[in-house]
Design a protein around this nucleic acid. Structure first.
Lengths: 213, 213
DNA sequence: ATTATAATCGCACATTTGTTCTATGTCAAG
DNA sequence: CTTGACATAGAACAAATGTGCGATTATAAT
């Protein structure tokens, strides 16, 4: 079972992968040791031999950094990034052009971030801070799943046909003939509208805020 | 004109690429020499320096096989995910174990999301909603860049030595001998602490909220 | 407790490898 | 022809690095 050895081997594998990705070349025995908390080069070598035995890595004898990860099918075959179509900005003054700009631009995301299908996703960037009540700020990237209905309590991009004439991000609750649009921020009050006046554009599945650009 | 030097540099470049692809790690100076027909290590080093000057490769000083091809945009898109070490939760009761759990788990992210280096990034998951003032909610994944200082106004994970004894995410302003920790939410008031009482754990570069899991 | 086995460390050694310094060869411009 | 910049070797050296061995400690089985 999850013996200490197995855990460490896993740790070493991860380290090698991470190191190689960031540095451009594999780590040395000593670097691995430092990376995973082993203070003996021979022990690292010991584990490396075990990993080689298992066919998880390849080693060149007496060659510095002579370690090569054996890629698994999953990592090799299915690309681990997905391209999510980017539909531009979501503003509080116009409906979403859901079909219009299809395929124009895309946002690259790691597939590992998502559990379900990634086919019907699309992305929007938030303009203005009118959605701060949903913990969403100006410039945030919102990933949505295109669907006409959501579960109670899920956040969605909703187009309110009526007075405010705006698409916003709110938690949606179906309450009989009306719909309650609940801001994510609990200190703010909900809005009630008739069920036929709201149109679900998609369900919010992820929010990405980049502070560094 | 296609001087001999240019030809050889091209040859070296090709060799490095080919070698790296087949071996899984970059060649040594001597291997390059043998590969392109140069019998002097110093000459290879000489050309390598030239290539580095041109920005075509990256070299780590005194590191065996410390050569890294500078990837062109096209090639980059193939290996476009990075592994960010995941250091667990950030809670309001203990400092970050920044060094402790190195390499334990990782978060896979698309490199395209980042502009700068991705080497010194790490990830934390937010526990509790004590940081809702920073537009960050329970369960959010925060990507930080490990650095001891931030620019005025940037959001950082700060460890306040004093009374609250907590690590939180705040916008940091250096104001003489004291530091102003400004919540991201403009409706909340800042906290002032002495400069030597705060310790910057890292700068927040991205926030990822997954609503679907 | 005792024993056997697995884990772990420290160290020393032999290579490997990057760097540097000096010497030599090439070749075109003055 | 001389000069000087470039190109090339080669050797020498220090640092980096993989490997092997013995010793020690932990872990599990008896």
């Amino acid at each position: 079972m999850g013996s200490k050895q197995a855990v460490r081997q896993e740790k070493i594998l991860k380290f090698i992968k991470s190191f190689t990705e960031t540095s451009g070349f594999p780590p040395t025995v000593r670097e691995i040791g430092k990376g995973v908390g082993i203070s003996s080069t021979s022990l690292v070598s010991y584990y490396l031999s075990a990993l080689e035995e298992q066919g998880l890595i390849t080693r060149e004898r007496s060659v510095s950094r002579g370690i090569c990860l054996v890629e698994t099918e999953r990592e090799t075959s299915s690309q681990d990034t997905i391209s999510v179509p980017y539909y531009g900005y979501i503003v509080a003054s116009a409906p979403l052009p859901v079909e219009a700009l299809a395929g124009d631009e895309t946002v690259e995301l790691s597939r590992a971030l998502f559990d379900r299908d990634t086919a019907d996703l699309f992305a929007l960037r938030v303009k203005g801070n009118s959605m701060i009540d949903a913990l969403i700020n100006d410039g945030d990237l919102v990933i949505l799943r295109q669907q006409p209905r959501v579960e109670n309590g899920e956040m969605a991009a909703v187009w309110v046909d009526d007075s405010p004439g705006a698409t916003t991000l709110k938690k949606v609750y179906y309450e009989g003939k009306q719909v309650r649009l609940q801001p994510a921020n609990p200190t703010m009050l909900p809005i009630y509208v008739k069920a036929n006046q709201v149109q679900i554009q998609g369900k919010v599945v992820m929010v990405i805020r980049n502070l560094e650009e």
